[in-house]
Amino acid sequence: MSDYSIKARNNVKIIGSGEHVLMLAHGFGCDQNMWRALADKMGNDYTIILFDYVGCGQSDFAAFNANRYTTLDGYASDITDILSELNLSDVTLIGHSVSSMIGMLAAIKAPDRICKLVMVCPSPYYMNDLPGYAGGFERDDLEELIDMMDKNYIGWANYLAPLVMGGRADQSDVENLTSSFCSTDPRAAKTFARATFFSDYRDILANCPVPTLVLQSLADSLVPVNVGEFVAGRLPQATLRILDTQGHCVHMTDPELTGAEIRGFLG
């Protein structure tokens, strides 16, 4: 479709300057704003591409298609669509959390466009698969998550409104209760949650075609250190760096440390 721009669909923003291009992919629950601190630190030396996945942030929610985004492959297509529209190659893709796996899928799809990956707190599988693998969660935990999202997203009246209105209310009628920085379309958010937390990409790690930096937080309640080690162990060309910091969003809480690691990796 020549009249429809992927840039507009994914709310693509290009900032900074530099020969090398970094593409920053946000994780579940957030949008490109989560990169602001890191982007500010890297923008002087790199060209930075920010975007929102369809259904997140300021993307075009009308483009959301539950089929496409049921698996992480659909999100990876958002990345390759953008790279292809901008006609970029040799890009370093920095993905936070689930975007680490999405980035890897994108690199497998378009190895000529993505030359390096940085995975910030990645997990290929969030569930426990004991004894060999401790993802950290049981299925019940993840079902509870979906239920909890419902409780947080749905305005009481709006929860019933679409049904009362005959099931055909515009998505815009269903308001996000906590719509601020991390605005996400509720329908898209649940689809994203399922794609993120219920799928298993452990076997794909070996197919990753590009050198990868794995950044793992020392204390991350979402992703245990053993998962970071597992990821680095399975990737063919990985560098694991365990950061002496807490939390899952190290690029927000420790942008300097994260930035330094990335610079070191890019050389």
Binding site: G27, G29, L142, S221, L222, H248, T253
Partner: peptide, 20 residues
């Protein structure tokens, strides 16, 4: 926090607190 709450905390609440 329950495990499900950990997910919402790490992926939603914590970024929101840092940011806003």
């Amino acid at each position: 926090l329950t495990r499900a709450s950990c997910i919402l905390f790490e992926s939603y609440v914590s970024p929101l607190l840092v940011r806003e």
